[in-house]
Amino acid sequence: MTPESRSQATAAAIILLGAGLVLYFLPTIVLWIGNFSPALAIVVGICLIMAFFAVFWLRARYQRGRGK
C-alpha cells in the first residue's frame, strides 16, 4: 500500500466514522431540538444529512484541483 493510498483510506475511514456517529445520534438530536422548535429540528436534520454528502463532494473537488 502506497503512502498516498493509505492517506486516502484513512481520510475515508475518518469521514465514514464521523458520519456514522452523526447518523447514529441524529434521531436524539432532532427530537431534542424538536422540543424547542419543530421547524428548526427539520432544518438541522436536513443539514446533518447533507453534510455527509458535502464532505465527499468537497473532497472530490479538492482532489480534482490537485490534478489527481
Rank of each mutant, 00 (worst) to 15 (best):
T2N: 15
T2P: 12
P3E: 12
P3W: 09
E4R: 14
E4A: 12
E4W: 04
S5Q: 08
R6E: 14
R6I: 06
S7M: 05
S7R: 06
S7G: 09
Q8R: 01
Q8P: 00
Q8A: 04
A9C: 12
A9P: 00
A9H: 11
A9I: 08
A9R: 06
T10N: 15
A11G: 03
A11M: 06
A12S: 10
A13R: 02
A13T: 01
I14Q: 08
I14V: 12
I15V: 08
I15S: 04
L16D: 11
L16V: 00
L17S: 14
L17E: 07
G18C: 06
G18Y: 06
A19H: 02
L21C: 11
L21G: 08
V22P: 02
V22W: 02
V22K: 04
L23Q: 04
L23H: 05
Y24I: 05
F25T: 07
F25Q: 08
L26F: 00
L26V: 01
I29D: 01
I29V: 14
I29R: 06
I29G: 07
V30A: 06
V30I: 15
L31K: 11
L31G: 09
W32V: 09
W32N: 09
W32P: 03
I33F: 13
I33P: 00
G34N: 02
N35A: 10
F36G: 15
F36D: 14
S37E: 02
S37V: 03
P38D: 05
A39S: 13
A41T: 01
A41V: 02
I42P: 04
I42N: 13
I42F: 15
V43Q: 05
V43N: 06
V43M: 09
V44Y: 00
V44F: 05
V44Q: 01
G45H: 03
G45K: 01
C47T: 10
C47F: 14
L48Y: 00
I49Y: 00
M50V: 04
M50A: 13
M50R: 09
M50C: 13
M50D: 07
A51N: 15
A51I: 08
F52K: 05
F52A: 06
F53P: 02
F53A: 13
F53N: 01
V55Q: 07
V55F: 10
F56I: 10
F56N: 06
W57R: 05
L58E: 12
R59M: 10
R61I: 08
R61D: 07
R61P: 06
Y62S: 12
Q63S: 10
R64A: 14
G65N: 10
G65M: 13
G65P: 00
R66T: 15
G67S: 10
G67L: 13
K68N: 13
